[in-house]
């Protein structure tokens, strides 16, 4: 594989989006033990909401962005409360089917309301590429990279430094003990879904900044985000972000190397991931469960 700094730069920018979606997946997986297959389609739906505000209603970009994320947060909270909580104690497969149902619902909603014609999404990061020596990065890519890193940093700061973030982590690590400390664990689960949906929504908008907005836009992104989350260890938010960046770089390097090419880049990226998991089954940052025998 031809080692190319330029491709690594491009890969990191796209990988930051994978990292954000992977982070959303991990937030939900950590607290409820399920993978939310609808994460990408919820994000697409929220991106259309953002598009409606920014393009149709001519709202300033960042206000529309914030409103779309607030909408995504409430959507996540509502979905947890209305759809997920009733099946909380059901077998995991049942919950998986519920999230697959949500996948089709949101996919159809996006298609039904906004039609399938791809729409350009405005980006605040306009202009040509920035050159450093003979390397360059396009402004949209740089903007997306910085914005998604900021969103992820905010999430980490929230969990690290706020009382609610602490209570959410406690609920994930030991729900029974958390309850006895007075933490409303059910409410923390709702919040977790809300945050995950907001992070996903941000990733959706960033994706639309780079490619056109269409109802199936997040399909490919979700696959890479799954890979990133698994590579990072599924339980580790840091792992999800690092996994996302790695997957982005792998994809980019594989796509441009002469003997692999863009048709085969996806399988090659996954082969590398499988190899990593063979050596570290719990993922790069995952914790292996040790139980006393």
């Amino acid at each position: 594989m031809h080692f190319d700094v330029q491709q690594i730069i491009n890969g990191i920018a796209v990988g930051s989006i994978y990292g954000a979606v992977a982070l959303a997946l991990v937030l939900i997986f950590r607290s409820t033990g399920i993978i939310n297959f609808a994460q990408g389609e919820m994000a697409t739906f929220c991106t259309y909401i953002g598009w409606t505000f920014i393009v149709a209603d001519r709202m300033p970009y960042w206000i529309g962005f914030t409103v779309a994320l607030a909408f995504a947060f409430l959507l996540g909270v509502g979905i947890e409360r209305v759809v997920i909580r009733p099946v909380e104690r059901a077998p995991e497969l049942a919950v998986v089917i519920v999230t697959l149902g949500l996948f089709t619902i949101f996919n159809s909603l996006s298609l039904g309301v906004w039609q399938s014609l791809p729409k350009p999404f405005p980006t605040p990061f306009k202009g040509g590429a920035i050159h450093v020596g003979n390397l360059f990065i396009s402004r949209p890519h740089l903007g997306v990279l910085i914005s998604s890193l900021v969103v992820m940093a905010l999430i980490f700061a929230f969990f690290r430094f706020t009382k609610v973030g602490l209570a959410m982590r406690a609920s994930t690590l030991n729900p029974t003990a958390a309850r006895l400390m007075g933490v409303n664990v059910d409410r923390m689960l709702m919040l977790g879904w809300g945050l995950a949906a907001a992070v996903g929504g941000a990733a959706g908008i960033f994706t639309a900044n780079l490619i056109l907005l269409d109802p199936n836009m997040m399909g490919g992104v979700l696959i890479y985000a799954f890979a990133a989350a698994v590579l990072g260890g599924l339980t580790s938010p840091v792992g999800a972000v690092v996994g996302g960046l790695l997957v982005g770089v792998l994809e980019s390097l594989a796509g441009t190397s002469s003997f692999i090419g863009s048709d085969l880049k996806t399988p090659v990226a996954f082969v590398v991931i499988v190899l990593v998991l063979l050596i570290r089954p719990a993922g790069l940052f995952g914790r292996t469960r040790v139980s006393r025998v």
Partner: peptide, 14 residues
């Protein structure tokens, strides 16, 4: 029944 992956301070803060 501690929160094993949190620091001692964080456990007490919870």
């Amino acid at each position: 029944q501690l929160f094993p992956h949190m620091t001692v301070m964080e456990n007490v803060l919870v």
